[in-house]
Computed example of a mutant assay.
Amino acid sequence: MRKGDTQEIRRLNRRAILAHLRQGPLTRADLSRLTGLAKSAVSRLVDELLQEGLLEEGAFTSPPVGRPGTLLHLRPGARFALGAELGVEGTVLLALDWRGEVLWAKEWSHPREAGPRERLERLLQEVLPHVPGPLGLGFTLPGVVVEDRLLLAPNLGWKNLDLRPLLSHFPLPTALENDAKASALSEVFFHGEANLAYLVLSTGLGIGVVSDSRILRGAGGAAGELGHWLGQGHKPCACGRVGCLETELGLGALLEHYRSLGGKAGDLEALLQQAKQGEALALEAIHHLGEALGRFLANLAVAYDPARVVIGGKAAEFFPYLEQSLRQSLAAHAFLEAHRSLPVQPSLYGHLAPAVGGASLFLVRFFELGGLWAESPRRNGGRYEEVAFGDRRGLGA
Rank of each mutant, 00 (worst) to 15 (best):
E85T: 04
R112F: 07
G220L: 10
R295P: 09
I286Y: 00
R383G: 11
F170A: 13
L281D: 10
K181P: 00
Q7Y: 13
A184R: 02
L161C: 14
H288L: 15
E107P: 09
L322Q: 11
V46W: 04
L45S: 05
T140S: 07
T140Y: 08
G83W: 02
L196D: 02
T91S: 13
E52S: 12
W108L: 04
G262M: 10
L137R: 11
Q324D: 12
W158K: 10
P306N: 06
R11I: 12
G69N: 05
V356N: 08
D305T: 10
E385W: 13
H130P: 02
P377M: 02
N160K: 14
A331H: 03
G157N: 00
L363W: 02
L161W: 12
A315Y: 07
G382V: 03
R164E: 14
P76E: 12
P171M: 13
E256A: 15
L369A: 06
R122S: 10
G157C: 05
K235Y: 09
S347D: 07
M1E: 10
R67C: 14
H110F: 13
G350I: 09
A105V: 11
T35H: 00
A182P: 07
S109N: 08
R2C: 01
G312E: 03
A197D: 08
R383W: 14
D305S: 15
E57F: 01
L342H: 02
R295I: 13
Q274H: 12
Q345P: 07
L172F: 09
W373K: 07
V146D: 12
L283P: 01
L245Y: 05
A280M: 12
S168Q: 15
A334M: 12
G278E: 01
L255V: 10
K314A: 15
G313V: 09
E193Y: 02
A303C: 11
R214A: 14
L372G: 00
A194W: 08
R327P: 03
G136C: 06
R33L: 08
L72V: 08
A301V: 06
K3V: 13
R259A: 03
D305L: 06
K106I: 13
T203G: 09
A238Y: 03
D30R: 09
E52P: 06
L251G: 07
L94S: 08
K159V: 06
A316M: 09
A19S: 14
E256C: 05
H169E: 15
A282Q: 04
F190E: 11
R392P: 00
G390N: 02
E118Y: 00
Y321C: 08
H73M: 01
A59V: 03
L93S: 04
V200P: 00
R149F: 10
L72K: 01
G278V: 02
A238V: 07
V242D: 11
E147V: 11
A19N: 08
R28H: 14
L137F: 08
E56G: 07
A238L: 13
L93W: 07
H110C: 10
G115K: 03
H257E: 15
T247V: 12
G382R: 01
V242T: 15
L55S: 09
G4P: 01
V146H: 09
R11V: 08
